[in-house]
Design a protein around this nucleic acid. Structure first.
Length: 801
DNA sequence: GTACATTCTCTTTTT
DNA sequence: GAGAATGTAC
């Protein structure tokens, strides 16, 4: 955490402080800047003001290194600007240089700049890179994700929309539980109408900036016997009484705030002189409205995006936002970045050829002047294991040639695909990291601990209260809790308040009453400590100890208990890095990612979605099969639009590669414990032949094996590359047994072991703990450990349980 | 109220 | 196949 502030800080080096007079005379925005001296609302940094005057036109070095269009995008400071930045065209560079440029020109000081990103990572990178350009960290500017910035604004004016400033931000888990409760109250069958789906519908409404009252009846009538809309109203009401907001609310309630309180809106409109938006193609309607509201003041809004990389429509993103920009902001400057600095011409051509199959795009022509490299390699394999094996071999080969594992990535369509690669990489002993895997703050013990902190910080947080009221077990089970719940609902009180009143009555059994009283007293005591400014890490430690939570794990003989205690300690330690308990809680709800340790070179495994914005020398793209990629569900409920989005995803994948891209498709795949057969993705066929090197017989799913056997099902379909209409029926299920019978050479070992172990047997290993035997190969056992994952070990290290 | 067994869903992507 | 949710036995 940087501590230096630009405001009132001693001046930086003279070279940096010097404003760069811009050479291109006659460019409107510079003229305008001359006639627009510092009439900032707040006093500008003194060091910068006089510096605006000197005339000698010198182009600053940071501009010299940009190409013509990049430079244009940086220098078009005034008015609305749309930067269409193709993959690998130096988008981040433009963004950060632009920000630095504005600061260096003295057009605004940090507090007047709003830079919005989609991910916390992008926000961090932006801060770091601007700091590097300026040789100092910038403090006090508004950089962050939509949600973080929304929360920041909302906290300041929470009362306007019926919240208190310390409102909780619910996580996914809380939301589902809440919806479930509300459905119960309405007697909606959760079997028939899964709560998650209900929540999904509500979130979609929120994405579109619609409060319950704004949803048209026609739309509300479609789900759950027409009750979803009412459920939405219930949900919002409940959130308010919980003094809580969900993710969507962080923007939606901001919009409400702007609507209700025009003066506040005008305040922010005046404040934000320069607005910058990254990944504009992924904004949803609510985000769009939020931006548009804030940009009305100075109209200096710069949106950067690439319609070909729009991959979040399922989450409410509207490509329309980017396609419509010039209409929304008349007189906008549009800059196209088309020169690619990342990939070889073959990769670029392959990606361009693929994306050209999409109808609905603005269209760009990426080009590069680097020399030819390798063609994109496409390889068909027999099954998922072979796929992982082939990728592993290639990685080892590259490594042998001196390549770093850091420069390799496997990009998958869906999360479950990483497993096969993990197993293979473990076997090979290649270190890897999975991005987007289980996150620190999502672990059970951490969530419990946070629930304690939440209740202390925000007494009305019923969801947190419910989570820990009986953890550790105190005999306050479902029965007691129900009494509290009924009372709370009848009286319209939060659970803690209701519980407090119930203590005065005879409704609870004496034992439960005493326990509950003790718990509430604990809460009061901890809250007292909080208000007496006991340092929050100390407080957290006390809470966990005095509540018996730490003891619960200490006494647990579960194999993972020590690890959980470690995690708790780690969390308490992490608390010290935050200014306050509130700041910590904000962090965990908005930045649910683990800071990964950068020790040693590792292969990266992640989804295509997570890969956007990243690049690697070598990219492996497995699972290009109809049904998986394009994903069946995207086709089913997305139609042509869904297909095009899948294609954009493929485009994103290919364009992550600097030097080498390997596409793979398997004829058979074990999904779900069952064998699934598939034909190669239509995207494979859409790759232009001139830039692709195909291995194995095209059209046959399998790399032709020993038997030259391509896998049942493929011939029946008769077509190559998804020629079958609509994609439906292209996949089918088959029992493992049948697949085994047909191939004969399946990579499955004898069921019975020599050493007295059986497949499926539960065993114990000194180092890895408990696990179940997957397969047996002589004296080597493949064991799926409960904690340590699947490993191969010698049978002598394993004992029966 | 709790512990264990059984059944059932799920898998696209995430701030 | 795994994890959650539900059902059953103590």
């Amino acid at each position: 955490m940087g501590t230096m502030a630009v405001h009132g800080e001693s001046s930086p080096s003279p070279a940096m402080r010097r404003p760069w007079e811009v050479p291109a005379p006659g460019r409107m925005f510079y003229k305008r800047s001359m006639s627009d001296p510092f009439d900032l609302t707040a006093a500008p940094p003194p060091a910068q003001a006089p510096a605006q005057a000197p005339a000698a036109p010198v182009s600053p070095p940071y501009l010299e290194t940009l190409n013509e269009s990049q430079r244009q995008a940086v220098e078009a400071v005034e008015g609305p600007v749309l930067v269409l930045a193709g993959a690998g065209t130096g988008k981040t560079r433009v963004l950060t240089t632009r920000l630095a440029h504005i600061l260096l020109l003295g057009r605004a000081h940090p507090g007047e700049m709003l830079a919005v990103t989609f991910t916390n990572k992008a926000a961090r990178e932006m801060k770091d890179r601007v700091a590097a350009l300026l040789h100092r960290p910038v403090e006090g500017w508004w950089v962050g994700t939509f949600h973080a910035l929304g929360a920041r604004i909302l906290r300041r004016h929470a009362e306007v929309v019926g919240l208190k400033p310390n409102f909780s931000i619910l996580d996914d888990d809380d939301q589902v539980r809440l919806i479930k409760q509300l459905m119960e109250a309405r007697k909606i069958d959760p079997k028939k109408w899964p709560p998650r789906t209900q929540l999904g519908v509500i979130q979609r409404w929120k994405d579109r900036g619609l409060m319950p009252a704004a949803v048209s009846d026609a739309e509300g009538g479609d789900y759950a016997e027409g009750q979803t809309l009412e459920l939405y109203a219930d949900y919002q009401e409940r959130l308010r009484s919980l003094n809580a907001a969900d993710f969507g609310d962080l923007l939606l309630l901001c919009l409400e705030l702007f609507k209700i309180d025009g003066e506040t809106l005008r305040h922010y409109q005046r404040q934000f002189r320069y607005i910058l938006v990254d990944e504009y193609q992924d904004t949803n309607v609510a985000q769009y409205l939020w931006l548009r509201a804030l940009a009305q003041g100075h109209r200096n809004i710069c949106c950067v995006g690439d319609d070909d990389q729009s991959i979040y429509s399922w989450r409410g993103a509207e490509v329309g936002n980017i396609l419509r920009f010039e209409t929304d902001f008349p007189g906008a400057t549009v800059v196209r970045l088309e020169r690619n600095y990342r990939s070889t011409p073959h990769i670029l051509a392959a990606a361009s050829g693929l994306i050209a199959h999409n109808q609905d795009r603005l269209g760009k022509t990426l080009w590069t002047d680097v020399n030819e490299g390798e063609k994109v390699r496409v390889r068909g394999v027999w099954d998922g294991q072979e796929e992982a094996r082939v990728v592993g071999e290639e990685m080892e080969a590259l490594q042998a040639k001196g390549a770093s594992l850091n420069d390799m990535a496997v990009l998958v369509r869906a999360g479950f695909q990483t497993r096969e690669f993990e197993e293979r990489l473990i076997t090979l002993g290649l270190p890897y990291r999975v991005i987007g895997g289980p996150r620190f703050y999502e672990r059970q013990e951490i969530r419990d601990a946070i629930a304690y902190l939440r209740v202390v910080h925000q007494p009305d947080d019923d969801l947190a209260f419910e989570r820990i009221v009986n953890v550790p077990k105190r005999g306050l089970g479902a029965a007691s809790l129900q009494i509290v719940n009924i009372y709370a609902r009848a009286e319209g009180l939060p659970l803690t308040a209701a519980a407090r009143r119930l203590l005065e009555t005879e409704e609870l059994k004496p034992k439960a009453r005493a326990t509950l009283r003790a718990l509430l007293d604990d809460f009061d005591r901890w809250r007292g400590l909080l208000h007496n400014h006991v340092p929050h890490p100390d407080l957290a430690g006390r809470i966990l100890d005095e509540s018996g939570y730490t003891d619960m794990w200490r006494q647990s003989k579960a194999i993972e208990a020590p690890g959980r205690l470690d995690n708790l300690r780690e969390m308490v330690a992490a608390l010290a890095e935050f200014e306050s308990l509130q700041a910590f809680l904000e962090h965990v709800s908005l930045v649910m990612e683990n800071e990964e340790s950068q020790d040693g070179a590792k292969v990266t495994l992640m989804t295509l979605h997570a890969a956007k914005g990243l690049e690697f020398d070598t990219v492996f793209l497995p699972g290009w099969e109809e049904g998986l990629f394009p994903h069946q569900r995207a086709l089913d409920d997305g139609g042509v639009g869904g297909l095009e989005e899948e294609r954009r995803l493929a485009y994103v994948g290919l364009t992550r590669a600097r030097a080498r891209a390997h596409v793979l498709h398997a004829a058979n795949r074990l999904v779900y414990g069952q064998w699934q057969t598939a034909i190669p993705s239509r995207f494979v066929g859409e790759l232009p032949d001139d830039h692709v090197e195909r291995q194995g017989v095209p059209g046959l799913g399998g790399a032709v094996d020993e038997e030259g056997f391509a896998g049942p099902g493929l011939h029946e379909d008769g077509g190559l590359y998804g020629g079958g209409a609509g994609g439906a029926g292209l996949t089918r299920w088959r029992s493992r047994r049948r697949a085994l019978a047909q191939t004969g050479s399946w990579n499955v070992h004898e069921r019975k072991a020599q050493g007295g172990f059986d497949v499926g047997q539960r065993v114990f290993h000194q180092k890895f703990g408990y696990g179940r035997i997957q397969s047996i190969d002589g004296n080597k056992l493949e064991i799926a450990f409960e904690k340590a994952g699947t490993k191969r070990v010698m049978d002598s290290f394993v004992e029966e349980t």
